[in-house]
Simulated scan of single mutants.
Amino acid sequence: MAVGTLPTSSLGAQRAGDALGYFPTPPWATRALCEWLDAELDEPMAVQTAWEPACGEMHMVRPLRERFAEVIASDVQPYGDHQLIDFPSFGWAYPKADWVITNPPFFLAESFIATAFDAAKRGVAMLVRTAFLESEGRVNGLFTANPPSYVLQFAERVVMLKGRLIRANAVDPFAEVEGRKASSATSYCWIVWLRGADGLWPGDTRLRWIKPCRARLERDSDYPDYCVLPAGPAPT
């Protein structure tokens, strides 16, 4: 690292970032989804439940709890105060929630979506790279069998870094190049499935844009204080 050392809890997150594709979600991106759901749903979110099955260090769980009556938090990695569940392998054993909402590991996203279809009573929302939409295999498989109800494309970049949460345009103390600011060349969107009254996932995909809202929705308390330690002297 260029200028410091991650504290113990974040070292675990970085290792998970290597092994499990852990890229923490800025809470404002979850609040943007919640605002959209609150405007679109017939029944208030305040009487519904949600399950975040790849909760990591709870960065998505906290804004979900601002809106939903109850939020179940789980992950396969022991980050902290949450249930230990390997979501894609869990099957029918867990009580259903109204919603399953998460930022799944990219290489397991389709498995997470398939399990979420079983676990969610009302809807599924997955935060994915926009490139997730363009695979020939997914178009012929997942998106043909279960077309999303909505694709919510972010008009501004959602900055997600491996194993750590840094405010966009703030200096990343763990960047390989000292003084580099947190940014991203990756585009993200929410994919949303709404279950129909018949219990099925009707297909009629509509594209919507999430207009710039980061400055309005983010809070200083969203971002961890990593308490960066000074770099030690170079070995002699």
Results as ranks from 00 to 15, higher is better:
Arg180Met: 13
Asp198Gln: 10
Leu194Thr: 08
Ile113Glu: 15
Trp92Gln: 10
Pro173Arg: 05
Arg214Glu: 07
Thr30Ile: 10
Phe112Gly: 11
Pro233Lys: 04
Gly21Cys: 00
Leu200Val: 08
Leu41Tyr: 01
Met58Leu: 13
Ala114Gln: 15
Trp193Asp: 04
Ala54Arg: 08
Lys121Ser: 14
His82Thr: 06
Asp204His: 14
Pro224Trp: 03
Arg62Tyr: 05
Tyr79His: 15
Asp225Ala: 08
Asp38Cys: 08
Gly21Ala: 04
Ala13Glu: 11
Thr5Val: 11
Arg167Pro: 01
Ala73Gln: 09
Ala13Tyr: 00
Leu165Gly: 06
Glu110Lys: 13
Asn169Leu: 00
Gly179Tyr: 08
Thr115Ser: 15
Val228Lys: 04
Cys213Trp: 04
Trp28Leu: 02
Glu40Arg: 14
Arg164His: 09
Phe23Gly: 03
Cys189His: 05
Ser184Leu: 06
Ala231Trp: 00
Val158His: 13
Ser135Gly: 10
Arg15Trp: 02
Val71Phe: 11
Met58Ile: 03
Val128Ile: 04
Ser149Gly: 11
Cys189Glu: 04
Pro95Lys: 12
Leu64Glu: 14
Phe68Asn: 09
Asp225His: 10
Gly80Phe: 10
Glu178Arg: 15
Ala114Lys: 15
Arg65Met: 14
Gly80Ile: 09
Thr8His: 05
Asp222Gln: 05
Trp209Asp: 05
Ala50Cys: 13
Ala234Glu: 03
Arg15Gly: 00
Leu142Lys: 05
Pro53Asp: 15
Leu217Gln: 04
Ala234His: 03
Ala182Phe: 09
Phe112Cys: 12
Asp98Leu: 09
Glu134Ile: 06
Arg208Tyr: 02
Met45Tyr: 07
Gln14Val: 02
Asn103Met: 04
Val139Gly: 09
Arg219Phe: 07
Lys181Tyr: 11
Glu70His: 15
Pro27Glu: 08
Asp98Glu: 13
Pro104Cys: 08
Ala46Glu: 14
Pro53Trp: 09
